[in-house]
């Protein structure tokens, strides 16, 4: 169990320079997710245009892992269809739970989160944004 496995360079880069990070106003807000156990907080916004998710923004407060994961997710989902995103979300969540390997066509830089699996207490930090994304898509469908 090495700290550098958890905090890989690529992960810290996403943490320092999160992709898609921007303030999300209440009007734009699509989904808000809070992990009361640790105080991580995510506000998510996007638009659906011609069946594609665009203009993805997230406002994240949390640890390095949660912010990096939201950044990796935001970069991936931009321009994709809800079906593609749901499949990717399931793949990431299964991987984080140790139920499957790194998905071959999954989000770029996802490998940077692979080390989190050795730290069970931190897995939720990495999956929260994907749960929020799925819930947001469900809400858009409804």
């Amino acid at each position: 169990m090495e700290l550098d496995d958890l905090y890989q360079e690529v992960l810290l880069d996403h943490y320092r320079h999160p992709r898609g990070a921007a303030p999300v106003s209440d009007r734009e807000l699509v989904m808000e997710e809070v992990n009361p156990a640790c105080g991580d907080h995510l506000r998510l916004a996007f638009e659906l245009r011609d069946g594609h998710v665009v203009q993805v923004r997230h406002e994240s407060r949390g640890c390095a892992i949660s912010i990096a994961s939201a950044s990796i997710m935001a970069a991936f989902v931009e321009g994709r269809t809800p079906a593609e995103i749901r499949a990717a979300a399931d793949g990431v969540i299964a991987m984080m739970r140790g139920e499957s390997d790194l998905p071959a066509d999954g989000p770029e830089d996802l490998a940077a989160l692979a080390g989190v699996r050795q730290f069970p207490m931190r897995i939720k930090c990495a999956t929260m944004c994907w749960h929020a994304m799925k819930a947001a898509l469900d809400r858009q469908d409804a």
């Binding site: 700290l3 958890l6 905090y7 640790c38 949390g62 640890c63 390095a64 931190r122």
Partner: peptide, 8 residues
Amino acid sequence: HPHDLAQF
């Protein structure tokens, strides 16, 4: 972040 610090 506090969790990252505790881990470190």
